[in-house]
Design a protein around this nucleic acid. Structure first.
Lengths: 195, 195
DNA sequence: TTACGAAGCGGACCCCGGGTCCGTATCGTT
DNA sequence: AACGATACGGACCCGGGGTCCGCTTCGTAA
């Protein structure tokens, strides 16, 4: 067993750090101005503990992100229709994209913070690969739809966090309008030209 | 007149800096590791001259970018069909997106470098606004196409530099395949569902 | 309860890169 | 030739990510 039981104080500190980071990122709006030292201080903990717990800045943000994403992931992998498996392909595509859009609307600060860690392209992150693979395989079940891999990328691109932030945050497009637009757009892609 | 004639050496240095930066960014691949000091040194110039000439890192990259973009811009604003004005709307949409895709393929390093200055969302940059406005107004001329503003954003999102880089660079998708996929995708969006 | 190794702590410290300051050199004009 | 204005350059500053190491706390074993 390579498993080590972590000490109590370590667990407590980790929780405190996550909570503090969550608050700070949410307050700041996009987390660009939140510094690692800030997080440590807000949690009442030394910087080294922060880095020991999460490795680096990206690790911290990723941890927050995964925590928020987990329920969504569960709903997709084993939940009821229209999100879960066993849903007819087209409906599931709509549901997936809508869910993703809502998630990004609700967690703008986190997703933005994650993207501009700048460490690596968002396309290299494993969660992108996960979403893409799922969407692609779902698209593949729709007859007559060409280039499912590219189509999946293009549809996902329409829900990019900074685009969502720009539309919802900067241009003030209401949530429901955005969802409707995305659904309409998706419908055109799925139904495609008649020929 | 607020116009000042710049001194000869200033002009020469500016040119040397641009050339050096261009080379360095191209060599590095995505320009993340290129430091301002590197650029200055490669140009045989002091750091201060670099910052005096371009303001800051973003200014330098933007200058390179604009230089490359200028011919494209001209072709769009006053060139012959299918890019220039006077082209039927649908063909022009294809031409615009294809041109943009090719531009990003040819200038990946620059566009990536520009995006990850991280200073501000790419959607705030005026060149994005320019492309979006043009695409939107062209889409608006196509009857039956809903939400032209959102559609323009979504189509442009499919040509995002990091996506292009991921597909062309990391996954090795050939240039022509990518262009074909984008064209097919665009066609489905434009032609839309029959109902 | 004590004792003692190991796991964890924290803040001083390092490093690196963007951006600035100011004494000096060059330009170009009269 | 001479003298302001303009530009030069490298030493310098600063802020933030990440690390080091002497000290503390935990948990276990006697």
């Amino acid at each position: 067993m390579t498993e080590r039981t972590p000490r109590k104080d370590a667990v407590r500190n980790r929780a405190a750090l996550l909570a503090a980071a969550d608050t700070l990122f949410a307050d700041d709006g996009s987390g660009e101005a939140v510094t690692m030292a800030d997080v440590a201080t807000a949690a009442g903990v030394g910087k080294a503990s922060l880095f020991r717990a999460f490795g680096d800045r990206t690790g911290l943000i990723r941890a927050l992100y995964e925590a928020r994403l987990e329920p969504v992931r569960d709903a997709v992998e084993s939940g009821p229709p229209p999100l879960g498996p066993g849903t007819p392909a087209p409906e599931r595509v709509f549901a997936l994209l809508d869910t993703l859009l809502c998630f990004k609307l609700d967690n703008r600060h986190l997703v933005l913070a994650l993207e501009d860690t700048g460490s690596d392209s968002p396309y290299r992150a494993e969660h992108y690969g996960h979403w893409h693979a799922l969407l692609e395989s779902t698209l593949r079940q729709i007859p007559g739809l060409p280039d499912p891999a590219f189509t999946a990328h293009a549809l996902l691109a329409a829900t990019r966090a900074d685009l969502v932030e720009h539309l919802a945050g900067h241009e003030g497009v209401p949530r429901e309008t955005l969802r409707a637009h995305l659904a309409t757009f998706t419908a055109r892609v799925l139904n495609g030209p008649v020929v």
